[in-house]
Amino acid sequence: MPRALITGASSGIGAEFARQLAPQGYDLVLTARSQAALEHLASELRQSQGIEVEVIPLDLTQADAPSQLYQQTSDRNLQIDLLINNAGFGDYGEFAQGDRHKLLGMVQLNITALTDLTYQFLQPMRSRQSGTILNIGSIGGFQPIPYLALYAASKAFVLSFSEALWAENKDLGVKVMAICPGPTATGFNDVAGFSENETANTSPGLASVESVVSESLKVMKRDSGSAVVGGWANHLITSIPRLLPRDTLAQVVGEQFRPKPPSQD
């Protein structure tokens, strides 16, 4: 049976990837910080689908965690056929007023850990001339987003990086693809620090995790380095940057995402 490794698998999109891959015959390796949540999901899938599920709790904001993850899969003789780099988070507000530790943790998780895991698991895939790496990006990676500046920049990295690696590896039997959803019904807004008012303003419609993952598993069969998922509006949004000067685009998007003053009762 093929085996998938999913980061950020304790909830949201990561957990849904596990739930949808299991009935397709994938054994799983699940990693995230919360061991309890991972064990609960693993038990559910072992019982309902009869698959093998390995749990490796790690905090990928720690510099040595990607190497620990790769080493543990190697020590357990777990061949990874599908790597899903899903773990990531955002931080809403002015960059200069953000928490420095949280911001650097975002770079470590969204960029550095994703890069390191891609590098390490790509080596055996190239040797076997088979394998797939899905890097979970965002439609936010197609343009600068003031007040989500670092998050959008990190997803721009994921998009460019994945498309380049797709071209480098496509003739070697290895696929690398950036999956770019739009606003999705996960815990992202809570972690990023959106208020209820700001969430309504910046996320007019949330796609379900079930639909995003289902579409992602369909489009990963394409011969392409990236795919926008989550509805036609997301395709429209990612096309707009081609039509506007970049300074104008940043200003327009900035007005949409500018924090709103507290409502007065």
Rank of each mutant, 00 (worst) to 15 (best):
L38P: 00
Q49K: 08
E39T: 15
L45M: 09
D59V: 08
A32Y: 14
Y26K: 03
T61W: 01
Y70W: 07
D59Q: 11
S43N: 10
T61P: 08
V55M: 01
P57T: 10
S43M: 15
T61V: 12
R33N: 13
A63S: 12
L60M: 06
L45P: 10
V55N: 01
L21E: 11
T61C: 11
E52D: 14
Y26V: 00
T31A: 10
A32V: 04
D27L: 00
E44G: 02
P66T: 09
L38G: 01
E39N: 14
L58C: 08
V29D: 00
V29I: 12
S67R: 15
Q49N: 13
Y26D: 00
V29G: 00
R46D: 13
L30N: 00
S67W: 13
G25A: 07
A65L: 04
G25C: 03
V55Q: 05
G50Q: 10
Q49D: 07
V55W: 01
P66N: 07
G25K: 09
E52S: 10
Q35C: 14
L30M: 04
S48H: 03
Y70P: 06
P57A: 12
I51Q: 00
L58W: 08
P23E: 13
P57M: 05
L21P: 11
L21C: 07
D27E: 14
D64V: 11
V55D: 00
Q68P: 06
Q47Y: 04
A37V: 06
V53P: 08
Q35T: 15
S34W: 03
L41H: 04
A32W: 08
A36F: 12
L60V: 13
R33E: 13
H40V: 15
G25P: 11
L38A: 02
L45E: 12
S48E: 15
Q68S: 04
Y70Q: 10
A37I: 02
P57F: 02
R33F: 08
Y70I: 08
Q62F: 10
T31Y: 01
A32K: 08
P57L: 12
L30F: 03
L41E: 05
L45I: 09
L21D: 14
R46I: 08
A36H: 13
A22F: 00
A37C: 03
L60N: 04
E52N: 12
Y26Q: 02
Q49I: 01
S43L: 12
Q35A: 15
A37H: 09
A63F: 07
V55C: 05
E52A: 14
L58F: 11
